[in-house]
Amino acid sequence: MVDNSKPSPSDNAIEVRQLRKEFGVLKAVDGVSFDLKHGEFLSIFGPNGAGKTTLIKILTGLTRPSSGTARVAGYEVEEGIPAMRREIGVISHSSALYADLTPLENLIFFGKMYGLEHPQESAQTALEDVGLAPRRHDRVRTFSRGMLQRLSIARAILHEPSILFLDEPFTGLDIHASNVLKEHLQTLHNKKRTILMTTHDVSCGLEMCDKVALQVMGQFAFFEDIKDIVKENFETLYFDAVRNNQFTMGIRPH
């Protein structure tokens, strides 16, 4: 699927305006606004508990924002409409795969859930794409972390989403597996898929992205084009933010 096959009111894949998620005293996301164009790759950095995961959960329709709006692939996420979910794929540190089923069965199941016309064939091709076709009849339980992550990529892009969300995808991967993941991301990026990724890994995150954001205490302290960023300066800023866990709005790394 090409990213603009569906009539979209703007050329932004993701539009976020004053997004807030709070409950009582907890403020997970506190007034975030940004735009992401089709085909762009955004890396969001931030210390633990900064609200990165909550942001992704709102954008993927898993949870409702308290206020503000977010449009993903032209759909208002607050409506939680199923059509929006067809346009997005999600990869997180948990694989979302049934351990007692085989990779093929897993993918067929998710293909059916997404209403694909030929779940069987799509599952086969997806397995070949990630190089797991030889093991398609083994139980997922026997898979290594790296293989699981590859299968989880296959699951996330099975329905050919135009936007991909990755929530700390490198956590717990060895060097080889994370290289494989990077390759896949590069391919997807080259295919003009919109990608939003949260990560702790500065070099990995800065390597591929077009836009960089730093989220601290629920707010975007920083949202810049990769061209305007000096890597070393950003690293210091990021580590400062993690150490102080402080809202550092207004500090520019250049």
Binding site: L62, A83, R85, L97, A99
Partner: peptide
């Protein structure tokens, strides 16, 4: 418990299903 293992329930909830 089967649904919670590996975060499968989240995978289900991400699908365009009611």
């Amino acid at each position: 418990v089967l649904e919670k293992e590996n975060g499968c329930l989240m995978g289900l909830m991400l699908a365009p299903a009611d």
